[in-house]
């Protein structure tokens, strides 16, 4: 079983990621167990997938926004967002919208070209699971979450920007740093 970084720990991954074939065809037979299906498969086989009984996740390509699944969030235990290249930053906004705007509370997983040096930003945007690019040591990557001990902006998990927290801690306007 592959490993996964989940809530800042290395764990075994019980989920199976279904991918279209090289020519783009969607799988017709579903495997047993927990599956994460491409958005297109969800859109095509929605009823079949719901009737199937196993745990269900969906994954979005970087060009696919959260709007496509906004009404169905309750059906998914995992939403994976793909990074075809780590420089493709659309997934960061996707995750923030899933958390901030659509209130999704399940797992948001980063898949594809996911590397150590993206982990902190990804987690601040709402990702809580990371399937690292092949060959990367997840254990060694864990330190990335503590590269920075503070952040200026508000983000998922800490919606208040630093400037609001400064004043919350010192209501008379005095600084505490």
């Amino acid at each position: 079983m592959a490993t996964l970084i989940k809530i800042r720990q290395v764990v075994q991954d019980s989920w199976q990621l279904l991918e279209p074939t090289a020519d783009g065809a969607l799988p017709t037979i579903l495997p047993q167990g927990d599956v994460i299906v491409p958005l297109a498969l969800w859109q095509r086989d929605r009823e079949k997938l719901l009737a199937r009984g196993g745990r269900l996740g969906v994954w979005l390509q970087s060009s696919e926004g959260p709007e496509a699944i906004a009404d169905d969030l309750a059906q998914f235990e995992v939403i994976a967002v793909s990074f075809p290249k780590f420089t493709d930053g659309r997934g960061y906004s996707t995750a923030r919208l899933l958390r901030d705007r659509y209130g999704y509370r399940g797992e948001i997983r980063a898949i594809g070209d996911v590397q150590r040096d993206q982990l902190l930003y990804l987690s601040r945007c709402g990702f809580d699971a990371f399937s690292l690019k092949e060959g990367r040591d997840p254990q060694a990557a864990l330190s990335a979450f503590s590269d920075f001990s503070e952040a200026y902006q508000g983000a998922v998990g800490q919606p208040l920007p630093l400037f609001r927290r400064r004043f919350a801690n010192a209501p008379d306007g005095m600084e505490w740093s």
Binding site: G89, A151, Y152, A155
Partner: peptide, 14 residues
């Protein structure tokens, strides 16, 4: 400057 420094969402723009 502060807000855009290490902005988690906008660090991999097009």
């Amino acid at each position: 400057r502060q807000w855009s420094t290490f902005h988690p969402e906008f660090s991999y723009l097009p």
